[in-house]
Design a protein around this nucleic acid. Structure first.
Lengths: 333, 333
DNA sequence: CCTGATAACGGTACCGGTATCGGTAACATG
DNA sequence: CATGTTACCGATACCGGTACCGTTATCAGG
């Protein structure tokens, strides 16, 4: 059972390939009943157009390549659905690739994506190595670097400053009277944005003559279970801390569960702070502070930016779209 | 800055298009230094092959289309990364589409996916309407229906029986001595698999002369916050229940948080049961029962099934791969 | 010296569509 | 009646690769 082609549809309708093509695309210059005949023929053969041929011929794919580092965390799926949502009705289609937080892999995924001749590409962060950047540039399409603003963008840039987010959180926690602050994170060599938040946070502490009183870091990926485990380890050796800054909300939630089991009141005795503003944080039985990053909105913004660019490549809008995550879950004095 | 083509690479290397093609694909019948010249030329022009042309010409895309209903839940991203993982090294590439739990949308997404001439397609569940099934069949490629086994598969089928999962959980909860059982769910008209679990669960109750003592259902999508809210509503009018079966773990986790805030001991006074076996459930401060569905493994199995089929279309392996989710978080007597 | 095998490469015909340019028929217009 | 115009439709040339077959040069063997 072979796939039927336009040629076969045309033959069945008794017209030429060209006319069939026009009829199905709803172009003008086709008589009404001819169009109907073609439609019927297509229906009968359950014809599905071949986009390979279409795109090769018309020299545009309407494809948006998206490369994200992971899918196991909930944040990137949310970004992806934002992108998807922002693309509906534009005739564009997103295709995803996962780099597993690996530069090598990312380069290969990007190469692979580019071979599909996408009309635009979205990559995560702006810390790609030079050769990857070169490859991106040579594709001659709009490049959008998403999620992060701390660095020099190649082309377009949509995201938030993780440095600023870290600083803001540090300031807020200090303002809330916390001084004995510890850090809990994971996979720091992979998650560069978490590192940016942490170092910026530490910078604020240093300016006050403070520093993290303790750190617990391991090299697995962040998860609730790992946050719980690392927090337990931390508290075993440092029972007198009054605040923990986590690499993200998953870890912080695990931390909260640890505290609850140990009977430590949160946030009165220890304030927990994460990053992302996951929906989870709004339902937890005790508040954890977090920077609410607009993941869906960033995805949508990137998508919209692309559709705008496609509409009129001439008048260029802003090259950078800045988001600022508000801090929630922290009762400031 | 236009993309360079194979023709240009060939010209630069001083050979024909064909030879360049052979050289880059590592085929034999190319002299060693010719191959090197071509490689250098390709490098110099930072040549990236055009997969549209490749696939159109060679009549195979090595694309696996995947259609999932959602991305906001954590379960489908996990399935996707399973698929991705199972596909690495096979030369196949997964492309994703999101149907938003909407049959109409699903049909359009599938049509769209098929237009890319994928080598195989994975869809979620086996409750597609007839016209969608017809379209799938007419594509003439392997079709894999994933996640669910309760129904008649079109072609291949990988998943678990949600009916059985619901029944097993009911049996287990009854064995644990629970009798006043309530149900909390959401978006039931969308999530058919949750319905299958619930009705099967109710069937077991009915066989014992029991039924749900109360139900709380609304039509938003499941989330922790919604689970918390619905549980609060449920307990307000039914304070004497001893068990709640949820449509999934997100809802159940929300329920747990509700109970904790109300000071209700879990699981001694009320046992909470969900579905999925999210990582979250292993870190919560009180246990919730759940059927641990192997999401990643199912994705990987589907991917592996496809690569197997591609390798030798002749000898057909099993058409169905069955997973059985174990129940965790429940101390049976 | 002729033959045949082998290695290396090129030419041509596709793959399934769309762009572009023409062509034809029917009808209005001067 | 000649001449535009308009509405439809078809032929042809691509798009950028690969499949397939053919060609050429080189060299060993009889």
């Amino acid at each position: 059972m072979r796939r039927s082609t336009l040629e076969e549809v045309a033959a069945l309708a008794g017209v030429s390939k060209m006319t069939a093509s026009r009829a199905l695309r709803g172009a003008s210059d086709v008589a009404h009943d001819t169009r109907e005949r073609v439609r019927k023929a297509a229906e009968k053969l359950s014809y599905v157009g071949n986009r390979l041929a279409l795109s090769l011929s018309s020299q545009r794919t309407n494809l948006v390549a998206v490369v994200v580092p992971s899918m196991s965390n909930t944040v990137f799926p949310e970004v992806l659905s934002g992108i998807n949502a922002g693309l509906v009705g534009s005739g564009m289609q997103a295709v995803f690739g996962i780099s597993d937080y690996d530069e090598e892999k990312e380069r290969e995924i990007i190469r692979d994506m580019l071979s599909w001749q996408p009309s635009a590409i979205i990559v995560t962060g702006l810390d790609q190595p030079d050769d990857t950047v070169a490859m991106l540039k040579s594709a001659g399409i709009p490049i959008i670097q998403l999620m992060d603003l701390d660095g020099t963008p190649v082309d377009f840039n949509v995201g938030l400053s993780h440095g600023e987010a870290g600083r803001d959180m540090a300031v807020a926690l200090l303002a809330a009277g916390r001084r004995k602050i510890a850090y809990v994170g994971s996979a720091l060599e992979k998650d560069l944005r978490a590192v940016k938040r942490m170092t910026a946070f530490a910078g604020v502490l240093a300016a006050q003559g403070l520093s993290f009183v303790a750190e617990q870091v391991d090299d697995g990926f962040s998860s609730i279970a790992r946050g719980k485990r690392l927090t337990a380890r931390l508290l075993a050796s440092n029972p007198d801390i009054d605040c923990i800054y986590y690499s993200n909300d998953d870890m912080a939630a695990g931390g909260l569960f640890c505290c609850m089991e140990m009977g430590i009141p949160v946030p009165s005795q220890i304030v927990l702070a994460g990053f992302n503003g996951l929906d989870l944080t709004e339902a937890l039985p005790a508040p954890i502070a977090t920077s609410k990053s607009p993941r869906r909105a960033m995805g949508e913004a990137a998508a919209r930016l692309i559709t705008d660019i496609m509409r009129n490549a001439s008048e260029t809008g802003p090259k950078t779209i800045v988001f600022k995550p508000p801090i929630t879950g922290l009762r400031t004095v």
